[in-house]
């Protein structure tokens, strides 16, 4: 993943600065730039759970609340927003309580019907993806973080390190341990005859609804 700044446009860092001085128009611009990326990160992390839209919205509410602690990567806030999104997805119950009033103001989603063939293909792909996400969520929380950023959303080690506020060597070692633990679980998913709808040992599909017990770095 490369930095999201285009030449000539204000960077996210500049937008956050202006927004923090009182111009929320600038933060609305940040939402416009990154809502799609955050939403897809939430979908992957939550195993294509229907509540990914709400978690995306809560991510931006939470990002606004924590705007003074944002860690920019070459001017981009996206890597940090993905960290916030992962944490919000893990702590949905608390987020919903905190942002209940603001969520209520947003329109309810209407899922558009897919063309049949497309829908079948996506259902299978989403089931498998949900299984992968479920396996990732069995890891220790610091390992979950690096897998979510690097392997699921394609951030570089350096971007993940900055976004998480940890050394790049720690990202490497955590990722290595995480991949080691995931290998047997993922191998099971690739076995011939494995049905994506049947859970493999150790991984339970479905998005977590409350706080994880293992705690790591939080932005």
């Amino acid at each position: 993943m490369t930095a999201r700044r285009s030449l000539g446009r204000p960077s996210d860092e500049e937008l956050f600065q202006v927004a923090d001085e009182g111009a929320e128009t600038a933060f609305a611009e940040v939402v416009g730039r990154h809502a799609d990326a955050v939403f897809n990160h939430c979908l992957r992390w939550m195993g294509y759970d229907s509540e990914a839209e709400d978690v995306t919205s809560m991510t931006f509410f939470e990002a606004w609340r924590k705007r003074r602690t944002v860690r920019f990567v070459e001017g981009s806030a996206l890597p940090w927003l993905l960290v916030v999104a992962t944490n919000v997805a893990r702590n949905q119950t608390r987020g919903r309580r905190r942002y209940e009033r603001m969520l209520a103001k947003l329109p309810k989603s209407e899922s558009a019907p897919d063309v049949a063939d497309e829908a079948i293909r996506h259902v299978d792909a989403e089931r498998k993806a949900a299984k992968i996400a479920a396996c990732v969520r069995t890891l220790r929380r610091p390992e979950q973080d690096v897998v979510a950023l690097c392997d699921m959303s394609g951030l570089s080690y350096a971007e993940a390190a900055t976004a998480l506020g940890i050394p790049i060597g720690t990202v490497r070692s955590r990722l290595s341990r995480a991949r080691e633990r995931l290998r047997p679980m993922l191998a099971e998913l690739d076995e011939p005859g494995h049905s994506p709808s049947i859970p493999s040992a150790g991984c339970v599909a479905g998005a977590p609804r409350s706080t994880s017990t293992s705690r790591g770095d939080q932005p």
Partner: peptide, 16 residues
């Protein structure tokens, strides 16, 4: 190892 290609194509967040 997991990669972004293991997941369905990205979709846009609801415009509304």
């Amino acid at each position: 190892m997991i990669s972004p290609e293991d997941f369905p194509p990205d979709r846009p967040f609801s415009v509304e």
